[in-house]
Design a protein around this nucleic acid. Structure first.
Lengths: 243, 243
DNA sequence: CGCTGCATTGAAATATCTCAATCAATGTGG
DNA sequence: CCACATTGATTGAGATATTTCAATGCAGCG
């Protein structure tokens, strides 16, 4: 029983069993390895059980723009379920474990379990809300604030799946990854980290990860308010049946 | 019978009737008037029948970041269906007509018509794809290319609902609106329009709208490829039932 | 040891912003 | 029909943020 994250709290035991029963197999992906490429024809979709994945668009000249950072509990390529292809790549940042669902089985599953279908729909709505927050961050924030933004969003999402210990962000993103997320240069990203450290907001650790010293100030700097991640019952599928 | 746009082609007559039968009432909104405010509690959702709406986040200091431009055939606030509130504002650019659905009726409707439920899900997936394209545009493109991007995206989406005549973009967005979409200053937006005109790519008309002279070059400049809007059967809900 | 990958720094080049002024069209009240 | 206000577009010049290019440092690793 290894479904965690977003869906976990909203599903009945029966639904959970049905979902797990529809898993084709589990897949492991090594760090910095691509799982799905843009344009590729898709017949299956993957649910991220463990690890962190990067979703990004790559330009012909090799520059990347991250569009999402997937954490455990996310479906990483549900967009390909109806469209049969993705507009972006999905690759592993850390060692990842995923559950594979063939689209055929998914169709069966979702037509037998409406509530589950809703839950998956709503989880894609949350993805869209996160996308909108990124649009705002790229349009509105300075480079330094963007870096802070990515950090605090990750922390907030880690809290939701109970994987933040209150001090350290363990995700081994490179400065280049932050740069590709924020739409800035890796050189400039480096300077941003320096100023963030000089202000005493965080401390980058050798190896990977960082220690967060002042999350509140990081959030203020990034103009971040976490409501959009939960809202009044975001993902609370029950909201619908209630009335 | 006035449902047009995205959903139209994918629905059976019966579904269309059911959908139309669930409409609470239709609502008219005057230009530059707000329909839904961020944070407000929502009990209904709106489908845009006619007109153009702007969805944007507003910062305390009054600056705006557009996150989406809604065209006829879009649900403008489906995100509020499960979450009961929106993370952004929705307001009319032009005179708009909308169909109002109470969430209660929607729940009934979608549980009676699974196929319809899928269609709505997939339409939100397309929104997310458009969001991702914006993220890329803001992270990767110069100011001039961003302006071109917004223009060509609108044109491509207008083509999908058969509202582009091949030459003129009639949508009365102000330069300030383009600026708020692209995350740049209105002053700079003005300079971008000038250079776009000097290159002979388009001609801004007094009053509103513009004449497009070289759509291909605008697309190249904006690094725009329209596949993500349709893909192999994007929105073709039938894809699922087929196999 | 000598790579290799990543982080760090410096200095000049460029894109974009800010502020302030002007212009052109439109609408309004007298 | 004129005077005037308002709104949006346009221009200029200096300030600032970010990029670019090139070099250096620093660690882990075969």
């Amino acid at each position: 029983l290894f479904l965690k994250g977003r869906l976990r709290n909203e599903l009945s035991t029966e639904e959970r069993l049905a979902l797990e029963g529809s898993i084709e197999r589990t897949v492991s992906v090594r760090p910095r390895t691509t799982l799905v490429e843009a344009g590729q024809r898709l017949e299956r979709s993957f649910y991220l059980i463990e690890g962190v994945m990067l979703r990004y668009v790559e330009s012909p000249q090799g520059t990347r723009q991250l569009v999402h950072i997937s954490l455990p509990g996310d479906f990483v390529d549900l967009h390909g379920y109806p469209t049969k292809r993705l507009d972006h790549n999905v690759s592993a940042l850390t060692p990842c474990e995923l559950a594979e669902f063939s689209h055929g089985k998914l169709t069966q599953l979702l037509s037998d379990h409406q509530h589950l279908a809703r839950a998956m729909w709503f989880s894609t709505l949350l993805d869209a809300a996160i996308h909108r927050a990124w649009i705002r961050m790229m349009g509105h924030l300075t480079a330094e604030a963007r870096v802070a933004y990515v950090i605090v969003e990750l922390i907030e999402r880690l809290k939701l799946i109970e994987r933040f210990d209150g001090h350290t962000l363990e995700i081994p993103l490179l400065q280049r990854d932050y740069a590709d997320a924020c739409g800035i240069t890796d050189v400039h990203t480096n300077r941003c980290f320096r100023t963030l450290q000089e202000r005493g907001l965080l401390k980058v650790r050798r190896g990977s990860g960082m220690v967060i010293h002042d999350l509140g100030e990081l959030q203020r700097l990034a103009d971040f308010s976490p409501e959009y991640l939960y809202g009044e019952g975001a993902l609370k599928v029950g909201n619908l049946e209630d009335r």
